[in-house]
Nucleic acid binder design. Structure first.
Length: 539
RNA sequence: GGGCCUGUAGCUUAGUCAGGUAGAGCAUCCGGCUUUUAACCGGACGGCCGCGGGUUCGAACCCCGUCAGGCCCGCCA
């Protein structure tokens, strides 16, 4: 069974109504790792729906979290906002300096991510944590915490094995400047927490009005309590024994609710770099990846990997492999289905069911049939066409000739979208070099090693005038290349001729159809390079 | 110190929760196709399932131990 279905099954034993939560702090640029959090929750929500459960997916934005430090991408001016809540401070401008405040720090980083989520088919109910505080959603939990300080302290200290500092209090009031740091709680009397701050000011925070917040280890269970969360996936940082999930369990019970079902997921690692970090600036944004491949590929990245496996990712070869695997699965799944039936092993049928589910959960629209349209056209093929054909029409024509599509009309929609993204990928730094056609303007060492035989020179000498004189069409170019090789006085195998030309033009002994490539390169460029090859052999 | 996750073919891995002959993709090699879509089709090669014990008629799977890698217990998904 697919991991999302396994989880949904477990949830169905718990009840029929579920609130599936997911939360992220918008402290910096969102990255692919955050996508795992969201998509894990999204897919399990869908799996719940598939088995008739009433499940709602909510995405909690931690806008109430304070700025911890001045990250590398921020100007030192942000020093004065440390300890201030992300939903109350200004977004950085393009230089990392605090902006004019027309958009908050939290919204600045959240908005592009929301756009990516929309494209990727995830539309959760958004809950702004700062708003929740201001609307008093946490008042109940905060009151219980403040009335049971010793017990809360005991739970956290015993579970985490960590000693809390002397003045620790289960509620952090905002100080006179709106900062959460350096505030000392001096007393509590519902609904107020009294405090003094580092500026010598003192005051009272109303628990019902968001004049402060719960520290993380209480904030989390308080959300579970107020929203009735029954399931939440979280990164392994929270999952360790003594981590915030294990202290959250008894705390949410203290608030009067049952803890949600957990699911710990592993990190996505940037190949050759390590873990991604929003605050450390090592990221691949979901929007960047979305520019390069269709959204179902990114969903597939999450769907095909079990949550407890780490994922190695990059925007080059890893994306290519993923794209190819998706396509291969599309073209094989129906065949596999036909083969796997009653007489198959349990193993084979389990594998099939899991793979089908991976495809299903990769579809952008929930419940939509798997789209098989693009299965015949591989990444390699499309990448090659996109490189030698600058006009989309020519790409469609080529696909049509190859029998990969019925007609150019079929190219609309998804294929057109794929090609568009492929062109962006090609133009970017992310495109993997081995797939890039490297059209040569000199005779490379590799080509030089190949170009040794007398026939090679004869062939090129005879080809050159034909190329020069022929009508610049793929057909005539191709005829010139092949007919020349076949002439008796040359006696070169056609295959050998192609190899020769691939070496001269691409520095490798194979390549895409040569004639369209020449056509695309233009007569002038082709002739210059041919002459260089002739010169090389003549010396 | 405490805990979590991972370890299966050269690489990526499925199968572990419900024990029943170890599967796939990529790569490699061979063959087919040959006015060649680095395509496509067919085949081969390749695994003491980290290691040691135990339970069982039977273990990649369950139990105990052990080694290795990654990570957490400081609010980085």
């Amino acid at each position: 069974m697919h991991w999302a279905d396994v989880m949904a099954e477990r949830l169905s034993r718990r009840g029929d109504k579920h609130v599936i939560a997911s939360g992220i702090t918008p402290s910096g640029v969102f990255h692919i790792g955050h996508l795992r959090e969201i998509l894990t929750a999204d897919m399990i929500t869908r799996a719940c729906h598939a088995r008739g459960l009433d499940a709602e997916f909510i995405f909690i934005v931690d806008s109430a979290d304070p700025l911890r430090k001045v990250y590398d991408f921020l100007d030192p001016e942000y020093e004065r906002y440390i300890g201030h809540q992300l939903g109350t401070i200004p977004a950085p401008d393009e230089n990392g300096k605090p902006g004019d405040g027309s958009i908050t720090y939290a919204a600045h980083f959240l908005n592009p991510f929301m756009e990516a989520l929309k494209q990727i088919g995830v539309e959760p109910r958004i809950i702004d944590n700062l708003d929740s505080y201001r609307q008093g959603e946490f008042a109940d939990s905060a009151r219980i915490a403040c009335e049971n300080v010793a017990e809360v302290r005991e739970i956290i200290e015993s579970k985490s094995g960590r000693e809390l500092p002397e003045g620790w209090y289960p509620y952090n009031p905002l100080d006179s400047q709106g900062c959460l740091d350096g505030v000392t709680v001096t007393g509590y009397e519902w609904p107020h927490v009294h405090w003094t701050d580092s500026h010598g000011e003192s005051g009272s925070a109303d628990l019902r009005k968001g004049e402060g917040k719960l520290p993380w280890r209480l904030d989390w269970p308080a959300r579970w309590h107020s929203l009735g969360v029954t399931f939440e996936p979280f990164g392994k940082d929270h999952g360790a024994s003594g981590g915030s999930y294990s202290t959250g369990r008894p705390l949410v019970q203290l608030f009067g609710s049952e803890p949600p079902e957990p699911l710990v997921y592993e990190w996505i690692l940037l190949r050759g770099v390590g873990a991604m970090s929003a605050s450390g600036g090592i990221t691949v944004g979901p929007l960047v990846a979305l520019e390069l491949v269709p959204p179902e590929i990114l969903r597939f990245l999450i769907a095909r990997n079990k949550p407890n496996k780490h994922i190695e990712f990059d925007t080059g070869s890893a994306l290519v492999e993923l794209t190819e695997e998706y396509r291969n699965l599309l073209s094989n799944i129906q065949e596999m289905e036909a083969e796997v039936d009653s007489d198959s092993s349990k193993r084979a049928s389990t594998a099939l069911i899991t793979k089908k589910a991976s495809l299903l959960y990769s579809q952008v629209k929930e419940g939509e049939e798997v789209n098989y349209e693009s299965r015949k056209i591989s990444f390699r093929h499309l990448a090659m066409l996109a490189q030698i054909r600058s006009e989309d029409e020519d790409v469609w024509a080529s696909l049509e000739r190859g029998g990969l599509i019925e007609s150019a009309a079929e190219a609309g929609g998804e294929l057109e979208d794929r090609l568009r993204r492929m062109r962006i990928w090609l133009a970017s730094e992310h495109f993997p070099e081995p797939f890039r056609l490297r059209v040569q303007s000199e005779i490379t060492d590799g080509a030089g090693e190949f170009l040794v035989a007398e026939e090679h020179l004869e062939y090129l000498k005879m080809l050159e005038p034909l190329i020069r004189g022929c009508e610049w069409k793929s057909k005539t170019i191709n005829d010139a290349v092949c007919d020349t090789a076949r002439r008796e006085e040359i006696g070169l195998e056609v295959r050998e001729a192609f190899k020769l030309l691939y070496w001269v033009f691409l520095d490798q002994n194979f390549g895409p159809r040569l004639a369209p490539l020449f056509h695309e390169l233009g007569a002038e460029l082709v002739l210059v390079q041919l002459e260089k090859a002739i010169d090389h052999l003549t010396i």
